[in-house]
Every structure is written in C-alpha cells, then in structure tokens.
C-alpha cells in the first residue's frame, strides 16, 4: 500500500510536536523514519495507524482517505504485550480471542522466526527479558500477516546477533511477503541494511529524505550532525 502524508500537524497542548510533515511511503518498500529522541516519530506512526487523530493535514492510503486498519500491523516501542496472557496467547491473539485453538504450530514457527525458543510458549510477559518481549511483540504484529507493518524501534535493546537476525527477518518479509514496512530506528546500520527510503524528522518537519544507500552522502547539515557518530565509527 502507498501512503501519502500532506501538511500533517499535531499539537499536545502547547507542545507542537509535528508542524508540517510531508512524506511518501512507497508500496512494498521499506521506509525508515529517523530523528532525535522526542521529535515525534512514535506519534507520527500512531497517527498514520489512526490510533491518534492529527490536528491538520491529510493522509492518503492508496490515494483514498479511508482505510481498513485491520490490514495494518504494529510493533510498539515498548512491546505493549498483554500481561494477563501467555506468550502464545499474545502472539496468536487474533485466533485466541475468536476461540480458535489450533494455533500451536503456527506460534512455534513465529517464535523460531524471531529467534526465540518454544520454551517460553506458556510463560507470561513478566517472566521474560526485555529483548524477548520485543521479539514476542514483533511475532504478534506479524502473525496477522498485515499488508503494511509499522515497526517502532525493532532492534533497540537487542544484542548485535539478535538485532542482525531481526534485520534479516525484516528484509525477508518485505521481499517475500510483499509487505510495505515503515520502521523507526536509531540504529543506522539497521537502516542502511533494511531500508529503501529514509525520512529524517527535525523540529516538526521532514528535514532530509532520500534513498538509504545514499544516506551517508547526504549534504544536509543537520542530517550530517545526526550521522556524525556513525561516520566517525566507519572512518576509524
């Protein structure tokens, strides 16, 4: 699905978080959203998903203003797992709530896909680690096979090996399942690896955008400041 955002703005009281956002999420591509902490990335994702209302501006989903959000999936920044349900019930929630029971194999496969063992199948979210929660939440978001997947910092809090595995998984689902992905990340390596296009938010507007493979060559001053740490690391 193609998603086009025009002149979008959002205020929380006096806090004008998004001022004038214009961007295009291309169909079956991986779009990366970058920006400093607190600049409104998570809010933008929730507005696109229609979990929060925007103040002004419009969003076009395949050129239409109306969309069936059942086609979307979302990994929340802090997982948002249901803490009264087990890992399996969380992942297979859409089946569980309909009273279906034959989701066991599907859940075990999902767990494998995000690098988790079937041991945690019957555990509760409070009994697993932060990085595991994040991956269970990712498995839950993918379980419904969405057309568009929104990922809020999928690799934050993971060790390098697991974070690379999640990157591979994101690449695989976009290529194989023909999903459109929108990913927020602070992990530039992951952005370079999994992204097609990027948008850099700053002070409520899109400050810089382009192809991910040209990101490090960006001429934008603020974007360069943002990437400084990563570039230093690469040069050494």
């Amino acid at each position: 699905m193609e998603i086009k955002i025009e002149k979008l703005s959002k205020k929380f009281g006096a806090n004008h978080v998004l001022k004038n956002i214009n961007l295009l999420i291309e169909k079956n591509k991986s779009t990366i959203i970058l920006g400093k902490s607190g600049c409104g990335k998570s809010v933008l994702l929730k507005i696109i998903y229609q979990l929060i209302k925007n103040d002004e501006g419009s969003i076009f989903y395949d050129k239409k203003k109306i969309v069936d959000i059942d086609k979307f999936g979302m990994l929340f920044q802090y997982g948002a797992l249901f803490d009264s349900l087990t890992v399996a019930e969380n992942i297979a929630f859409i089946d569980f709530i309909d009273g279906k029971k034959n989701y066991k194999n599907k859940v075990i496969n999902s767990l494998k896909e995000v690098g988790l063992s079937a041991d945690i199948y019957d555990k509760y979210p409070s009994e697993i680690s932060g990085g595991m929660k994040k991956r269970v939440a990712l498995a839950r978001a993918l379980f419904k096979n969405p057309k568009v997947i929104f990922l809020d910092e999928p690799t934050t809090g993971l060790d390098p090996i697991n974070s690379d595995m999640i990157n591979e998984l994101i690449i695989r689902i976009i290529k194989k399942k023909k999903m459109t992905a929108v990913t927020i990340t602070h992990d530039i390596q992951s952005a370079l690896k999994t992204g097609d296009n990027y948008f850099f938010l700053n002070n409520g507007v899109v400050e810089d955008s382009g192809k991910c493979n040209l990101m490090l060559k960006s001429k934008n001053k603020l974007m360069n400041e943002f990437l400084l740490g990563v570039k230093k690391l690469q040069n050494s």
């Binding site: 979307f72 999936g73 948002a80």
Partner: peptide, 20 residues
C-alpha cells in the same frame, strides 16, 4: 487499575491493532 495500566502501557492501542 487493570484498565488504566493497559492504557498507560499502550495495551489498549495494541488491542486496536489486533482487529479487536
């Protein structure tokens, strides 16, 4: 307490994203 906690930890948003 349960519903408020679910709201604070975005579980209610999560419900909306799971066709519920």
């Amino acid at each position: 307490a349960e519903i408020a906690t679910m709201r604070v930890t975005e579980q209610i948003d999560a419900l909306k994203t799971l066709n519920t």
